[in-house]
Nucleic acid binder design. Structure first.
Lengths: 141, 141
DNA sequence: CCTCAAATGAGAATTAGTCTCATTTAAAGT
DNA sequence: ACTTTAAATGAGACTAATTCTCATTTGAGG
């Protein structure tokens, strides 16, 4: 999923964000890297074409992108934050052996959950979204 | 959910782990604190009766307890690891406003998911367990 | 009660992420 | 195009969670 600079710029502008080369580079890196890169993966990727970007800037921009729903944070079992440029609803497969995390898209499941929670409210809590964390083992690991 | 020193010792011994005062204190603290304490919450709690425990020791013991399935790590959106002494299957409610995480037990939901995944296999992945992360807002927040 | 591998304590080291502040820049208006 | 200005960035100091190292202690089997 690679997107053009124009497409990325439009996404930023649509959210009312200033369009800067750094922001474009970070979104482009997330799309290009795919999977669930860490901030460090992103920094490393960007520095190839943009050697002077400060790591603090990357963290700040990632926060802004998350706040503006252009990127999601991925919950992990370990202490490094990961990011995800896919905003469609999806779940995650966590490998118990290594730190691989794969996306799992399943609209039937989404519908099942949605139907279930339509009738079942949790008292004192307004639900907004759900992500299923499925832990197991990949054959390849 | 407070457990006696004897009960905790037995849990450790049953896993083939050495029973040490530090390990007992950490498990007792997790049970006593309830919720989803951070390593720091646990250290603070233990130091009252056990002032000389080293933080490195606490982290190492927590790893051992997680490896031996006496404690779970809780996936969070932020960078501090949290722990959970409840080993029964349950899900989590995450507050979007603050960093509150509550347990959500729902056996009907568990059954629903189990039935669904009985017929639906994910290729190349052997599933072991699932936790639903439900994000939303608590009325009290 | 001896032995010894395993566990612990103390503190240094690492590292992800945050903060500060001087400088630069995007973009709205002239 | 040119100005203006609030917002964004770069550089690097700083913080805090977690890991590492290694000398010392201890649990548990023989």
């Amino acid at each position: 999923m690679n997107e053009s600079v124009e497409a990325i710029s439009k996404k930023l502008a649509d959210k009312g964000l200033k369009v800067t080369p750094q922001r474009i580079a970070i979104l482009a890196a997330i799309y290009q890297l795919g999977g669930h890169p860490t901030a460090d993966n992103i920094i490393e990727n960007i520095r190839r074409n943009h050697p002077h970007i400060a790591s603090g800037t990357v963290y700040k921009i990632l926060d802004i992108l998350v706040d503006n729903k252009l990127v999601k944070r991925v919950h992990t079992e370990r202490d490094v934050m990961r990011y995800d440029g896919i905003m469609e609803r999806h779940h995650h497969l966590y490998c118990g052996e290594c730190d691989l995390i794969e996306d799992y898209v399943d609209e039937t499941l989404d519908q099942l959950l949605e139907d279930y929670f339509k009738s079942k409210q949790v008292k004192g809590f307004r639900m907004r979204e759900f992500v299923l964390q499925i832990t197991g083992t990949f054959d390849k690991c």
